[in-house]
């Protein structure tokens, strides 16, 4: 058994891990933008042709191959900026050792309509124009998994037109982060989202999805050092 790490070391490692994921999303955004930016002059609305979708697919496949913790990646436009015959979501999910384009229901009159503009990840990345970790949430009518979505604004020609994001499943986050959290005193700690929701945890009563308004009795919250984000580490008071 290793000696317990200080909570500062743990917050540092969690912060580095988080920044690394956002670095990946930022890199993939540059490549996506290279494919779609030509539209801005051609037409007032985005239309992704099948040739362009092939190029986006290659970018997504490369990203997923390089990042085993990521389960899905893509770009999503604000609906009103997209041509009626082009899907507003260009999203790829891991499928075995390759990746697959994900279809969503874009018909507002359908009971299975994926009304993403109302969702936390779109509001954060597009509305607030900030990096956001949305969730954990059940992506009902989307990929239908219990996931987190890490998004940054999609900026084309100095204009925010949507978001670029990556999905990380909660059980994958567990595999990656629990070895770090277990180094806390008594092995009990949790990573807490900006909204006070637990992302990953080794504390039974405060598991993934639990909502904490303040630190529960006997616990302390310590901020992570991730720029522009209010993530926190929850751990037992010594």
């Amino acid at each position: 058994m290793e000696f317990a790490h200080t909570t500062t070391e743990i917050t540092q490692r969690l912060s580095d891990w988080t920044e690394n994921i956002f670095d990946g999303v930022t890199q993939v955004r540059t490549k996506f933008v290279n494919v779609v930016e030509q539209h801005v002059e051609k037409s007032p609305k985005f239309y992704v042709s099948s040739a362009e979708r092939k190029m986006l697919h290659e970018v997504a496949a490369e990203h997923l191959a390089a990042r085993p913790a990521t389960d899905g990646v893509g770009l999503i436009f604000q609906r009103e900026l997209v041509h009626a015959s082009s899907p507003a979501l260009e999203w790829w999910i891991r499928f075995g050792d390759h990746c697959r384009w994900q279809e969503f229901d874009n018909d507002p009159s359908s009971p299975r309509f994926y009304d993403y503009e109302q969702l936390e990840w779109f509001r954060g990345g597009f509305g607030a124009e900030a990096r956001t970790i949305a969730g954990p949430y059940i992506d009902y009518l989307g990929v239908d998994e219990y996931i987190t979505t890490w998004v940054i604004p999609l900026v084309v020609n100095h204009k925010t037109v949507g978001v670029v994001g990556a999905d990380l499943k909660v059980d994958t986050l567990e595999k990656c982060l629990i070895p770090i959290l277990q180094k806390a005193p008594n092995g009990r700690a949790a990573l807490v989202n900006e909204g006070g929701r637990v992302i990953v945890s080794t504390i039974g009563p405060y598991g993934s999805g639990a909502l904490l308004e303040t630190a529960p009795p006997g616990y302390t919250l310590q901020p992570l050092c991730v720029a522009d984000m209010d993530l926190q580490l929850l751990f037992e008071k010594s």
Binding site: R67, P68, K175, C176, I178, P179, Q182, G187, T202
Partner: peptide, 11 residues
């Protein structure tokens, strides 16, 4: 479960 594992870290 937690005492069982000492998984290698990824990514």
């Amino acid at each position: 479960k937690l005492t069982l594992q000492n998984r290698p870290e990824t990514e």
